[in-house]
């Protein structure tokens, strides 16, 4: 969590009560943070014009402009636009339509910033965890996909796991092997934690080594021998 400057959080929801409630809840947890709100697509884009926030908390059901009808499609279109423009933007989706995100999975997979989702009905502590994860650049996307128990991932991520745990390569070597930036590999790891259902914050608090934990989990789930 960046400490050197003021954290800006933008809460987007078309319902004033929700916006107000969420803002109050965030202010409570991040006393130093600057909480901004928006209730339409237009307002959100305006808020981005100066500079992107550190965290975007987005409801998918949004109207294009004030008084217009709120639709999940508008929210998704906005999300796609923002992810494309700001690949490192941390995003937390607060919605009852989380599953509709399945069609933008490719963009979410490729998104380098934090990306978490949470249902509006979750208890506060859980909501805070998701928001915090997003702010830390981690991912929590498992609720987007269906209930199929298999591990779903991109072929590249499997390659990263194999290079790391079967061939014992460091991130730099992996980056070289895959012809990508080292930062990209680090971003891959965050995605891998997500699909292996490892909560980096919890693990760290429990004093466990994240990579070793990942290796164990990957072996448990049959990703490596």
């Amino acid at each position: 969590m960046p400490n050197d400057q003021i954290v800006r959080i933008l809460v987007v929801d078309d319902h004033h009560t929700v916006v107000k409630g969420t803002a109050a809840f965030l202010q409570n947890h991040y006393s130093d943070a600057q909480i901004e709100t928006a209730s339409t697509v237009e307002e959100t884009l305006t808020a981005f014009q100066t500079s992107p926030p550190n965290l975007l908390i987005l409801d998918l059901s949004l109207p294009q402009e004030p008084e217009a009808e709120a639709r999940p499609e508008h929210g998704i279109a906005l999300l796609k636009q923002l992810m494309e423009q700001y690949p490192e933007l941390n995003i937390a989706i607060q919605s009852t339509y989380v599953k509709t995100l399945v069609r933008v999975l490719h963009e979410i997979d490729d998104h380098e910033g934090g990306f978490t989702t949470f249902d509006k009905g979750l208890p506060e502590t859980e909501v805070f965890k998701r928001v915090n994860s997003a702010l830390d650049g981690f991912s929590y996307t498992r609720e987007i996909k269906g209930k199929h128990p298999s591990i779903q991932l991109k072929p590249t991520w499997l390659k990263v796991i194999k290079l790391a745990f079967e061939e014992g390569l460091q991130d730099r070597a992996i980056a070289k092997e895959l012809s990508v930036q080292e930062s990209t590999v680090r971003h891959y790891w965050k995605k891998i934690y997500d699909i292996l259902e490892i909560d980096p914050t919890d693990e760290r608090q429990d004093g466990k080594n994240l990579r070793i934990r990942t290796q164990i989990r990957a072996r448990e789930r049959g990703l490596i021998d």
């Binding site: 991932l153 991109k154 789930r221």
Partner: peptide, 24 residues
């Protein structure tokens, strides 16, 4: 992506044994 997710979650015997799905 939508087709894949919807279909993977259908109740077929050959899909239940899957442990790993690579999709991109």
């Amino acid at each position: 992506y939508s087709v894949f997710d919807n279909t993977l979650n259908r109740n077929f015997p050959g899909l239940r044994t899957l442990r790993l799905t690579l999709r991109d």
